[in-house]
C-alpha cells in the first residue's frame, strides 16, 4: 500500500495552474501541471505554500482530488473560508498560468488503492468528499469492480461538490447516497438530516461484509460517524478517519 510514493524527503515544487473549475459558489478546483510529479495514492494530500511580497509565508494542507492515473493534472478542490489566509487567494485570485509552490504527496495512512479491495464505503461531509473523490476516480480509471458506496452530506444541492460527476458515477455502479441537511430541491426524495446511526445502518454494508470505511469531514461529523459504526459492530481497524477543522483557511 505505502510503497515508493511516500518514501522520500519532501521538497517544494513549483506547479503551474492549467485549469480552474467552479464546483459550487464557494468551492473551486485548481488543476495543475507539476513538473516531475512523483505520483501519489488516492487519499494523500499536499502542502501549499504562499509567499507574500514582504517574504511572509503561510501554508495549508489540501487533499488531492485527482486520481493517480491523471499524471499531468493534479487537482485540489478548495473551499473558501471567509477569513482564511490561503483559500480566498486560491478560490478568487488565482489565474490559469499562475505558479504556486507545493510539496507532496504526503501521508500514507488515509489512502486507498484498488488492490486494497473492499467493499469500499466512503462517508463524507462537505468538502470532506475531496480525498474520497480521488478514490472513486481511481476506481473508475482502473475499471475496478470493487463494490463502492458514497454517503455524502451537504447543506443543499447547490453546496454538493462534484454533483454531475457523482450522478455519472452512480450510473457506473457506485452507490451514491446524498443527504441534504438544510435545503432540498422540490420533490427531494432522499435523506434530509445529518448522518446518524440509523442512516449508517441503512446505507453501510453490514459488519459481516467487512467493508473498508473512509470517513472525511468536519470533526463532529467524523467523530459521530466513527463512533456509531463501532457501536453497529464494525471493526475499528477497518475505519479510517480524516478530520478537518478550521485550519483550512
Amino acid at each position: 500500500m505505502a510503497g515508493a510514493a511516500v518514501q522520500r524527503r519532501l521538497t517544494w515544487r513549483v506547479a503551474e495552474v492549467a485549469e480552474l473549475v467552479d464546483e459550487t459558489p464557494r468551492v473551486r478546483s485548481v488543476l495543475m501541471h507539476v513538473p516531475d510529479w512523483p505520483g501519489h495514492l488516492a487519499g494523500q494530500h499536499v502542502d501549499v505554500r504562499l509567499t507574500a511580497d514582504d517574504g511572509y509565508q503561510t501554508q495549508r494542507s489540501y487533499s488531492i482530488a485527482s486520481p493517480p492515473e491523471a499524471v499531468d493534472r493534479l487537482a485540489l478542490t478548495v473551499e473558501r473560508i471567509e477569513d482564511g489566509e490561503v483559500s480566498p487567494f486560491l478560490t478568487e485570485e488565482l489565474r490559469v498560468g499562475d505558479r504556486i509552490e507545493l510539496r507532496g504527496p504526503i501521508g500514507g495512512y488515509f489512502v486507498w488503492d484498488v488492490a486494497d479491495g473492499g467493499p469500499l464505503m466512503l462517508v463524507a461531509g462537505g468538502s470532506g468528499v475531496c480525498p474520497l473523490m480521488a478514490m472513486l476516480r481511481h476506481r473508475a480509471a482502473r475499471a475496478s469492480s470493487v463494490p463502492a458506496r458514497l454517503l455524502y452530506s451537504s447543506r443543499s444541492s447547490a453546496d454538493a461538490i462534484y454533483g454531475k460527476e457523482l450522478e455519472r458515477l452512480g450510473g457506473e455502479g457506485v452507490g451514491v447516497v446524498q443527504t441534504l441537511t438544510r435545503m432540498r430541491p422540490d420533490g427531494w426524495a432522499g435523506y434530509r438530516r445529518r448522518i446518524d446511526r440509523s442512516m449508517l445502518q441503512e446505507v453501510v454494508w453490514p459488519p459481516a461484509d467487512r467493508p473498508l470505511v473512509y470517513v472525511c469531514g468536519p470533526t463532529p461529523l467524523v467523530e459521530s460517524v466513527a463512533e456509531a459504526l463501532v457501536e453497529l459492530g464494525h471493526d475499528a481497524a477497518r475505519i479510517k478517519t480524516e478530520r478537518f477543522g478550521p485550519t483550512g483557511g
Binding site: 510539496r103 470533526t219 480524516e242
Partner: peptide, 8 residues
Amino acid sequence: LDGNAAAG
C-alpha cells in the same frame, strides 16, 4: 485532528 494531519 487525526495523526495523519501531522504527516508533512
